[in-house]
Design a protein around this nucleic acid. Structure first.
Length: 596
RNA sequence: CGGGGUGUAGCUCAGCUUGGUUUAGAGCGCGUGCCUUGGGAGCACGAGGUCCGCGGUUCAAAUCCGCGCACCCCGACCA
């Protein structure tokens, strides 16, 4: 492509409404253009990058025997009513009526549709396993879109679904996909961690997320510094401390005389910390939950920690919700000052303590009296019914496997794989006949990659403030040529020849043939992020040109691979050799990055 | 959905507090010409505006008031 004809309009300044690196650079480099909140155009450059990622995913899907299809993005409500997700996913669904008044929605994911297809055609174990996937636009009316392509309301996803006659078969495919995802991210040179994850609205028991560590991500996971265990903070288990608890009640009179203190307007931990000049860890928070049958649960947790409702629900075996003001009123509990000592209507509440309060001494809790707290209590003075692991894992929590310390990482979710089981096949009656003539629900798995999100993930992974760094396989062009002075006949003609020669070798080239000053061209090269640059300037008179690498390109490659080409960066080479050298570098990288 | 912020040229922003010398501006970008060509050059001329929208106050509104809308950020939520 000749730059003078290309649809590239770069910006010198950061757009005013971007905060993340990838969002800003993708707009400045003319890769994307915003249509509305969370909705973006992929401009020609951006679409080239997207297409490259797209193709690699297709290749790896093909390798594990998955067949590509294309489902509609426009759905009627009927299948969604059968799984009840018409209501349970309501917060992200784009819903509307067609002209006949039929309830319609834009597909946020395709479990319903694919299961319906498979239910229609597949009747026998002889047709299983079956792997079907598509790469398609998805619609989710996110409450808060974020960071450009990082979280959009319209985005492109690869969704693969697998169908099996047995759990063993599902396990095998799950592992195949795990490997395929590893290949995809390695070919894109995207660093990632695989973490155990929560399956959320999709459902199922086992799931793993593929995460890129980056401050602009929107998820957190923990990693054990000792054994390497990784898990989303949504589910990460924490080691049970060794302790013995025997309830030691304090006489009411002593309690009032020695432990009760006046703490006006301190219904939050933050206010208390200030008022009493203590740290968060000196408090035990009491949080009231209730279930659908109006049973109450008071959860105790150390002041600096947070309740993990996913773990709490799992522990209780049912879904619980924060109690509201009316619950407090009708039971004579004091909102903001509820606590596990001297509590009214005690028989109505089960008190569950997180392990984080174990062995605490000299702690402060709500006194069940407006504007009062108890101080100087030990954890054995609290009326605990049960101890459990129900907190969100944080730095320095102990690993439940090896007692090592956890570290928390901010991360961006690149892919997510799930063992679904029969949730959808039962709801949509996808049954098959097994070899004993028995009718059974098909066992399913589903596996997603945020294809458009990967574009910004790659930018997040390596880029500098004014310079994108594409990885070898994601770059829109492999080679960028700058002709310093296009009015110079020799420079221009030699550039044109090189450009044509590289193209004839099948190499993707962007040739900056504009009548711009050298500085403009160098800055644009850096911004656009193409890995290799050939500069043709004055020295062409001596038959010499230069080869440069994108400033961060070395970071995208494993050391041993980069070492093989490192000698070529910032090198003056003879014009006659440059095409050969470029070709060698590209062939070498092609071979070594796409090995598997 | 709660909290905060922003909205003036293609982009980044000034002007708004205290309404009227601003005939709505600057830099960048864009067009033409000259000049220049190894790190976002220079000079000259030029094009480009629903000051987010609607309503109100006023002799007079980009500026003050009200109601909307859009976008961004934090939180909540979320493959």
């Amino acid at each position: 492509m000749r730059y003078s004809k290309a649809f590239i309009y770069t910006l010198k300044e950061n757009p005013s409404d971007t905060t993340s690196l990838s969002h800003s650079l993708l707009i400045r480099g003319c890769y994307i253009y915003q249509h509305a909140s969370g909705i973006y155009n992929f401009l020609p450059l951006g679409f080239r990058v997207l297409s490259k990622i797209w193709k690699i995913i297709q290749e790896e899907m093909d390798k594990i025997g998955a067949q590509e299809l294309l489902m509609p993005a426009l759905h009627t409500s009927n299948l969604w009513l059968k799984t009840n997700r018409y209501y349970t996913m309501d917060n992200v669904l784009f819903k509307f009526k067609d002209k006949k008044g039929v309830d319609m929605l834009l597909g946020p994911t395709h479990e319903e549709i694919i299961t319906d297809i498979v239910a229609h055609f597949v009747k026998s174990y002889k047709n299983l396993p079956l792997l079907l996937y598509q790469i398609q636009v998805k619609f989710r009316d996110e409450l808060r879109p974020k960071g450009g392509l990082i979280r959009g309301r319209e985005f492109i996803m690869k969704d693969l679904y697998s169908f099996h006659a047995s759990l063993e078969c599902l396990d095998k495919t799950y592992n195949d996909v795990y490997k395929a995802y590893t290949n995809i991210f390695e070919r894109l040179n995207l660093p990632f961690e695989v973490v155990e994850a929560h399956s959320g609205a999709i459902g199922g028991d086992v799931s793993h997320e593929f995460m890129l560590i980056t401050p602009n991500g929107e998820d957190k996971f923990i990693k054990c510094m000792n054994c390497g265990y990784t898990a989303s903070t949504e589910i990460a288990k924490i080691n049970k401390p060794s302790f013995s608890y025997s309830y030691k009640p304090i006489d009411l009179k002593i309690l009032e005389e020695k432990h009760l203190i006046h703490t006006p307007n301190t219904s939050t931990i933050e206010a208390l910390v200030k008022h009493l000049n203590k740290t968060e860890k000196d408090f035990v928070k009491s949080i009231l939950y209730k279930d659908n049958e109006n049973n109450f649960y008071l959860v105790l947790i150390r002041g600096d920690k947070e309740v993990n409702e996913i773990k709490l629900n799992k522990y209780l075996g049912k879904e619980v919700f924060l109690a509201d003001e009316s619950d407090f009123k009708s039971n004579n509990w004091v909102l903001g000052y509820i606590g596990p000592v001297n509590l009214n209507n005690r028989h109505k509440i089960k008190i569950i303590a997180d392990y984080s309060i174990v062995n605490l001494k000299d702690i402060i809790v709500g006194a069940n009296k407006k504007d009062y707290h108890f101080i100087n209590l030990s954890f054995e003075n609290l009326e605990v019914n049960e101890f459990a692991d129900i907190s969100v894992a944080t730095d320095n929590d102990e690993c439940f496997r090896c007692s090592g310390k956890y570290k928390v990482y901010q991360a961006l979710e690149l892919g997510h794989i799930f063992k679904l089981g029969t949730k959808y096949s039962e709801a949509l009656q996808a049954y098959f006949m097994d070899e004993n003539n028995k009718l059974k629900p098909i066992i399913m798995g589903c596996y997603g990659i945020g294809v458009s999100r990967l574009v910004s993930a790659i930018v997040e992974a390596y880029s500098l403030e004014n310079s994108i760094t594409w990885t070898f396989n994601s770059a829109p062009y492999k080679i960028h040529i700058i002709t310093i002075n296009t009015d110079d006949k020799i420079q221009f003609e030699k550039s044109l020849n090189l450009y044509n020669e590289l193209i004839s070798k099948g190499i993707e080239v962007l040739w900056d043939d504009r009548k711009e000053s050298a500085g403009v061209k160098f800055k644009d090269w850096e911004l656009l992020g193409i890995p290799f640059l050939v500069v043709i300037g004055n020295k062409i008179k001596d038959n010499m040109v230069e080869l440069k690498f994108n400033p961060n390109f070395y970071k995208t490659l494993k050391n041993e691979i980069f070492e093989k080409i490192a000698n070529y960066q910032n090198l003056s080479v003879e014009y006659n050799q440059i095409a050969l050298i470029v070709n060698d570098i590209i062939e070498f990288l092609n071979k070594n990055i796409n090995l598997k």
